[in-house]
Simulated assay, not measured.
Amino acid sequence: MVTMSDVAKLSGVSKMTVSNVINGRSGVSDQVRRRVLEAIRQSGYRVNVSARTLRSGRTGVIGLAVPEIDRPYFGQLAAHVIDQARAHGFHVAIEQTGAAATGELEAITRSHTLHFDGLILSAVGVDPQDSRLTAGDYPIVMLGEQNFDAKFDHVAMPNEEGTKAATVHLIDRGCRRIAIVTGSALDGVNVVTRRYQGYLAALAERRLDPDPALLYAVNGMTLESGRDAAHRLVDAGHEVDGVVAVTDTVAQGVLRGLADRGVRVPGDVHLIGFDDIPESAYMVPSLSTVAPDHRWMAAKAVELVTARIQDPSRPAREYTAPFDLMARESTR
């Protein structure tokens, strides 16, 4: 059986260097890392995960459970989490929950079953008061909008603050009839309600009355739903000079829908989104948006889960990500 020592001899490095490469630790040059990986491939070396787990009590894997892996935001988040986890010596296993409570609870159970060292869960559907959702001794870090009452480490988006800033930005550009295109889940605590509250707070601060006719609810955060909302907005004949979209993906659909109806952005209507997905800077016009610090969020989530792996009894902590407002062509 090929051993780690055999790989070290074949690649001309120490056994510790081979271990660092296998575990994704920093401090190894790209040239040496490639040489070790080639030696592993040539020799057919396989890590004995069961033996390593028995010795250390850990697998070196953390889970990342997100609602949908085919949305740009979650793809971006996953890439950052993988980078940050690698710096801590962990690999990442990703799964999709469908934004449903059952999927999120199953992700927790599966992480236990597969002996992941911890889990980062983007929670959407699960009720924080669900009796099946217990912190216990298993390291879990929550992402998202729910209020977990300090039961779990939690990294939140700047939903209210960011959407308030986006709405104020439109007001400062001269907009007075500002529509919001957002999700239909306007009850409870979720991304929709939190961002809607930010929109209302901005209007109140600038002494503008909200008009219920300018609330356009969509059933999904998709391109198609955004386009459909824009069609309804224009066809209704309401006077509108600004639109706040709940996400950049929805904003892209809104832009397409306005163009379908001959409405120019920003000539006739100003438009702003939320998330700063990479495509936003390359749209025509480029999209103004709220830009949460995605790398900071990933780093904080990985920092928290690794700290809880080391000390499961430590007090839970909660953080809200910083953000910038990216003013681009769609509001100029």
Rank of each mutant, 00 (worst) to 15 (best):
Q310M: 06
D83M: 11
A301Q: 02
R206P: 02
S11N: 02
L233A: 03
R52I: 08
N219F: 12
T222M: 00
H294D: 08
P212D: 01
A201T: 02
E160A: 15
I40C: 07
R261A: 12
R41D: 15
D153W: 03
S280P: 07
D117V: 13
R25T: 15
Q96P: 02
G226S: 05
A321N: 00
Y199K: 01
V263M: 10
A100C: 12
D153G: 07
Q76D: 09
R58Y: 10
M326V: 15
C175L: 08
Y73W: 05
H154V: 06
I82M: 08
M326G: 03
D241H: 10
A299Q: 03
D275G: 10
G267S: 13
S14M: 04
E279H: 11
L114Q: 07
M1Y: 03
A259N: 09
L77C: 10
I108V: 13
H112T: 05
D117R: 13
P139Q: 14
G253V: 05
Q146I: 06
D30S: 12
A39D: 07
V7P: 04
D6P: 01
H80V: 13
L133V: 14
I108Q: 01
R232V: 07
P322D: 09
R71C: 00
E239M: 06
D127Q: 09
L258F: 06
S330E: 04
T97R: 02
Q96S: 12
A236Y: 02
E160H: 14
R332D: 14
V290K: 06
N48C: 11
S19V: 14
M16F: 15
V13P: 01
K300C: 04
R177T: 14
A321F: 01
E160L: 15
V284L: 09
R41L: 14
V168P: 01
S43L: 15
V155F: 07
L258D: 02
S29T: 12
E161P: 04
P210M: 08
T97M: 04
D209F: 01
L233M: 09
A201D: 00
V36K: 05
T3G: 02
S313G: 00
K164C: 09
G242P: 07
G118V: 10
R176S: 15
T102R: 13
G136D: 01
Q252S: 13
P210N: 04
G75C: 07
S280R: 06
R328W: 12
